[in-house]
């Protein structure tokens, strides 16, 4: 149900096929409503780099076509590893977990929000990690996420308490 509403936020053929993917795209975009990046760190566009998840990248690219802006900039999606350091959000898909140490090192102390969807990564340097939880009623699954505040430290990102509200906090 909520799904449908959020599907409208992320118009894309792929997203409609995979409800979880659609949710991930929507959540990723909606994070920007609860997190503020330092102005000097953002270039002409709000950059999202997607590594190791082509489907996610494709789904996100739909955002480029919309009028949506983050902190006054249009959104640009990149899949090049080289763009990781200069982007505001870096999504590390399942296919890129191997590069994690290098990416952590490259983006250390920089205002980059690291998001992943592989279990355990929140304890290995990623700030927000998606996971699926079985609904209380037992019917279907809900997309949730964990936040590791330690991994946000030193990145000059200000995160709304409301985001912590709905997240599972890990250390």
């Amino acid at each position: 149900m909520l799904l449908l509403a959020l599907a409208a936020v992320t118009p894309g053929a792929r997203a409609a096929d995979d409800p979880v993917l659609g949710l991930k795209v929507a959540y990723l975009y909606n994070f920007t409503h609860f997190i503020t990046w330092p102005e000097d760190a953002i270039g002409s566009h709000f950059r999202i780099t997607v590594l190791g998840d082509p489907a996610m990248a494709t789904a996100l690219q739909a955002l480029e076509q919309t009028d949506r802006q983050v902190q006054g900039r249009h959104i640009r999606i990149s899949t090049a590893a080289g763009d990781a350091v200069g982007s505001q959000i870096l999504f590390i898909g399942a296919g890129a977990t191997g590069q994690l140490p290098a990416l952590l090192e490259a983006t250390a102390a920089r205002p980059v929000l690291l998001v992943a969807d592989t279990p355990g990564l929140a304890r290995r340097g990623v700030a927000i990690n998606f996971f699926l939880r079985r609904d209380i009623l037992g019917e279907g699954q809900r997309l949730r996420f964990k936040i590791n505040p330690d991994n946000l430290n030193g990145r000059r990102l200000s995160v709304s308490a409301q985001l912590y509200d709905v997240a599972e906090i890990v250390r």
Partner: peptide
Amino acid sequence: ENCTSALVFDSPDTAARH
């Protein structure tokens, strides 16, 4: 307003708490 994130991220528990 406090329930905004709960609605956005589909968390009725959080909303109920608020």
